[in-house]
Amino acid sequence: MVEIRGELVWFITGTSSGFGRELVHAALNRGDCVVATARELEKIQDFPKTDKIRLLQLDVTDGFANIQAKLNKAISFFGRVDVVVNNAGAGVPCLLEEGGSDMLRKQFDVNLFGLVDVTTAILPHMRSRRSGTVVLIGSRSSWAQLPPSGLYASSKAAVRVLGEGLNEELTPFGIRTLIVEPGMFRTNFLSGAVYTGNPIPDYDDMRDEVAKRRRGAEQHMTGDPAKAMELLVDVVRGEGKAKGKAWPLYLPMGAATDDAIQAKTKTMLGVLDEWRDIIRDLDFDKKEL
């Protein structure tokens, strides 16, 4: 891990609440510059008044041309962007059959396609400089889900796989990729009501149980989003808790994410152990070659 000396310029989406808001403060506290974006600028007017921050209206679903224009404007503020953080996201608590592909598209429009538009808009700038860091905010739920998180989790799983592909494509240009997967942090993520636009009677009990479980669940989440974003800045800058460590590509955050990845990995290894002889014995017979 290379420790970065001097200021970085961060471009952060979705800074009106949650991780995005905490990351703005964490980056500013390290002496870095920040372009903070939100769909509604009035929600981020309370950020510190300093010449190291610029506010920019941005809806990641506005389409590539509009987003590229906003990124070009962001670059003009400080002359460059060193770190782009794809934090903007949407979570619609929805049972799969009730929401169908319409609700799934809403998840992917923000969590994946908006992320792709922001990233591809900044890449020409980073490639020309042979430098930069692309941060993708995923989720623990991509490793373990309970209803009604299946639609949201699928979009975040896609973020992880996309990040792995990006890493292979961008490394030759000196651009780093970081896939961040937080779990059970106390943000406002669970504030949305469970989707009831297409109620199917067979799911009534499940839907009621989900709604009951979500009420008040936020207060039982022990993850501190401020600590998480301090760690993110440590990793990007190669200092603090990340000093001397290799660039990770994956950055799981929180005990819940650790538990989920451990459990999923154990399950998959168990399947491989039980089925290995069978699944590996599917080549053409030697006499057919």
Rank of each mutant, 00 (worst) to 15 (best):
S16A: 14
R207Y: 04
T13W: 06
A193P: 10
P93Y: 07
V81C: 04
A65H: 07
V235R: 00
N86H: 06
G63Q: 03
C94L: 01
F284W: 14
P182L: 06
G150V: 04
T50M: 11
G6V: 02
G163P: 06
E274M: 10
Y203W: 07
V161Y: 10
W143M: 12
N66F: 05
Q145K: 11
W247E: 00
D204P: 00
R21F: 04
V35A: 03
F185R: 01
I12L: 09
L170M: 14
S155M: 06
T196S: 13
L58E: 01
N86R: 04
G240K: 05
V83K: 01
D62Q: 09
G150F: 07
M103P: 00
V110A: 02
R186D: 05
A121K: 02
G197S: 06
T120P: 00
A121F: 02
G165T: 06
Q219Y: 06
L58T: 03
P182C: 10
A255I: 08
V118L: 09
G100W: 08
F113I: 12
R130Y: 05
C33R: 14
E239W: 01
A36H: 02
A228N: 01
R5M: 12
R280Y: 07
E239V: 14
A74V: 05
G174P: 03
S154F: 04
L170D: 03
K266Q: 15
T133N: 10
R186V: 06
R280D: 10
V2Y: 09
M206Y: 11
R276G: 10
G163E: 03
S101Q: 10
S131R: 12
C33W: 05
V24R: 01
L282F: 07
N72Y: 02
A260V: 11
V9I: 14
A246W: 04
P48Q: 10
E230K: 14
L123Y: 04
F78W: 03
L104D: 12
P172M: 04
D204A: 15
V85I: 15
